[in-house]
Design a protein around this nucleic acid. Structure first.
Lengths: 189, 189
DNA sequence: TCAGACATGTAAGTCGTTACATGATTCA
DNA sequence: TGAATCATGTAACGACTTACATGTCTGA
């Protein structure tokens, strides 16, 4: 594949758990070739339109397998929304509620995105085809294998997002209940 | 609070959704003072044991409130485990199963951690106290407010982690079913 | 013909971690 | 007395993003 194609594949297929910028991608590809982990062959294009096609080498494959077997970084923990929400505890009650509502809207949109992708994929499975935009990933061996992986990673996104939405519902309820208690307390005073 | 105290508070109380290193913390604190967002006062210590105590200024409070109202970065997406798992679709079936099991063990441990913290917090709520290690966060106003926030952010961690574990169960089932199908296919051949 | 996709890169800068450096105090 | 903890910082490095630079090809 070319760098440009790799970027597209990531944007379309891996967008819910990975991203890469060109500024990261192209230098890395060159480094891979320099280290003998990949081979570059040239395309028939001209000038700036000439594509560089990369193929993994045996050495590269060994590196990849090695990386797969290394212990994996624990899921990264920084969540800006949670930090903000936590900080509102000392600042502003209304702000906390607003924050959660913003979060809920964003995550709801995300969930719909996932569900749409899932539908498309399941249709592809039924028709025994592989989504055209992702053809580069199907590989020469067995597309159905890759489709299962797609479906499962999507499921992961769906479950996480649903959990976030459940939390929004609970947190909103708790904050509103407390607000209620406070205002009625003031009145009886 | 001092830089050191802030670090401790983050490690103990915010560890499941935020972290900071000293290399980031101390220079930032100095910058905050230089920009008039915080004030530094000195402790009675001597030499390297002299603490710098920071207090937020009105200007700093405005900055903070402004940041709280800014749109929040969507939850970051990089998940190394998911990337590895996805890649095994073209490489090695067993490796995918191993990967999920590793993930499940890690997330189970995380869940237990959360549940333990939750227990401690709930006990504190019943006794109307605030956990000693986190006293710095309770503030002069109202500790119970902050405890609710703690409990809710913890709940978020719990729900997300449970969702991850649910996914592990599903994915493992799917991969094992496929393996089964394959081996029986080979036999009938 | 011209906007938008194709295609590859570099430079500058931000963000963040890790390792290092220094020294005081406490307590077993 | 010596290890652990308290306490503040810097330097080097690595990861990553953004903006920039350049040029081609396709199709409305």
């Amino acid at each position: 594949m070319s760098g440009y194609e790799i970027k597209k594949i990531i944007e379309i297929g891996l967008q819910h758990f990975w991203c890469e910028s060109y500024g990261q991608l192209y230098p890395t590809l060159n480094q891979l070739v320099a280290d003998g982990h990949a081979l570059r062959s040239e395309d028939s294009g001209t000038g700036r339109r000439k594509r560089h096609l990369y193929t993994i080498t045996a050495k590269g494959r060994r590196l990849l397998l090695g990386w797969l077997r290394e212990p994996t970084d624990p899921t990264s923990i920084r969540n800006e929304m949670q930090l903000k929400f936590f900080l509102t505890g000392r600042l502003n009650e209304e702000e906390g509620i607003r924050l959660i509502e913003e979060y809920r809207v964003r995550e709801s949109a995300r969930l719909e995105d996932y569900l749409k992708s899932e539908k498309i994929l399941r249709a592809a499975v039924r028709k025994q085809t592989f989504p055209e935009e992702l053809a580069g990933l199907a590989g020469p061996v067995d597309g159905s294998n890759q489709v299962l992986m797609f479906l499962l990673t999507l499921q992961h996104g769906v479950l996480i997002t649903e959990a976030r939405l459940t939390w929004c519902k609970n947190a909103l309820k708790a904050l509103r209940a407390r607000k209620q208690r406070r205002t009625s307390q003031k009145k009886t005073k």
